[in-house]
Design a protein around this nucleic acid. Structure first.
Lengths: 224, 224
DNA sequence: ATCCGTATAAAACACTCGTTCGAAAGAAGA
DNA sequence: TCTTCTTTCGAACGAGTGTTTTATACGGAT
């Protein structure tokens, strides 16, 4: 009932970190593929090669496992985002401001997160899945992880498009989130329609195609 | 084991259609909110006001319930899509071809489906959720329901943009699917970022904002 | 060596899951 | 009325769920 079993500040380099990391890695993979409700703790612990009770011992509950997963994997993304946003600047020889901002927002989401055994694509899938749910827990996790940096980028886009009404920018920013998340989800649908010529799993290619597309959309004249 | 209990061709207007429809309606709502694995048959049948065994009696299994749901709700969308595609034509006084095609693709997805108790928004959410999963069953259901009409619209967009390489069109078509599905999902995230000024649940507004945005993106010069 | 806080292990907890069964009820025709 | 087919209902099945508990092993410190 109480949170007595939360790990009590292991002062030194933890040797059981291996177990924790193995659980996180397996959980990310399985959650991304079949969702929170679709995967059992027994399957996760079996794939991680640890005992069933390890999840509740190290994380407290299944829900807190998901929270811990996001707390670890999302931070590098938002940090890199803010770093890239700080480097954006109008200067001769560089790309226009809007292109810089969008690339700074999208690139970390696509390419980052592949530290410590969980590749970026897996975490992206998990993110995309949680993003289309209306479950309160997921919305809270996503908000806590990404809202701050996302709001900062929204302001940067507003500033980069001074002639566009703010409401218009917000709609288009929303559309951008859709393209980003659906590409990260990589559901395989576009492959089945086109026969495989378009591969959203290729992060560099996706970025190269996505940024010009979005910039053109953002620069469209305001709606009547 | 066998499919013996499938409903055996009720020759006339079925009176138990009420039960079937109530189940479909409740299942759509609950599946859309919490996913296939997140909702139990007991909750569905309770909300529908029918007996627990009714699902297996009328549909055969939980999976077949989902298939039946899509078989009923997706057909009107694709039919309306193809009807609108057939009406697209280059003519003075009308919008450009690309705008007509995209509107024909998007409008039925947003506004249709609200027949027989399930409003369009609910089915849209369910669609969006299934679209980001990589589970084989869901991909099969979505492919069967939408691939044909989607492929036809892809060809129409290719034809409307003769100067754009096909691969480029396919990428941008994929991006369009992302904007459409994320808007239908209406996860509430853009509201929490912007404070509620942007409401994806407003279908007409979403269409008015989405079509110009996408058309500008499609018309961007090809990537190097 | 003992003690102690941490970690792992196996078993059991109380539920919920999708599905099935047998009986009861209803509807329609002979 | 009797019969037949369809539909509903309550109860149960076996399997699987997240979580808790109990006991055992490990690793340093005193």
């Amino acid at each position: 009932m109480t949170e007595s079993q939360a790990k009590l500040a292991p002062t030194l380099a933890e040797s059981p970190a291996r177990t924790v990391e193995r659980i996180l890695s397996a959980a990310a993979r399985l959650f991304a593929e079949r969702g929170m409700a679709g995967v059992g703790l027994r399957e996760i612990t079996a794939e991680a090669g640890v005992n069933l009770a390890a999840v509740n011992y190290h994380f407290g509950s299944k829900e807190k496992l998901l929270e811990a997963l996001f707390a670890r994997r999302a931070l590098p993304i938002t940090q890199e985002r803010m770093r890239l946003l700080g480097r954006c600047a109008e200067a001769p020889g560089r790309q226009p401001m809007l292109e810089q901002v969008l690339e700074g927002f999208l690139r970390p989401a696509f390419s980052l997160g592949r530290e410590a055994g969980v590749d970026g694509a897996t975490f992206g899938k998990l993110r995309a899945r949680l993003s289309v749910e209306s479950v309160e827990l997921y919305r809270r996790i996503l908000s806590q992880a990404f809202d701050a940096s996302t709001a900062a980028f929204l302001e940067a886009v507003v500033a980069a498009l001074p002639d566009l009404p703010r409401a218009e920018v917000e709609w288009r920013f929303h559309f951008m989130l859709g393209t980003m998340l659906y590409t990260m989800a990589d559901s395989g649908r576009i492959q089945s329609i086109t026969g495989g010529t378009c591969q959203p799993s290729d992060a560099e290619m996706a970025l190269a195609k996505l940024v010009p597309f979005l910039c053109a959309g953002f620069r469209a004249p305001p709606t009547a």
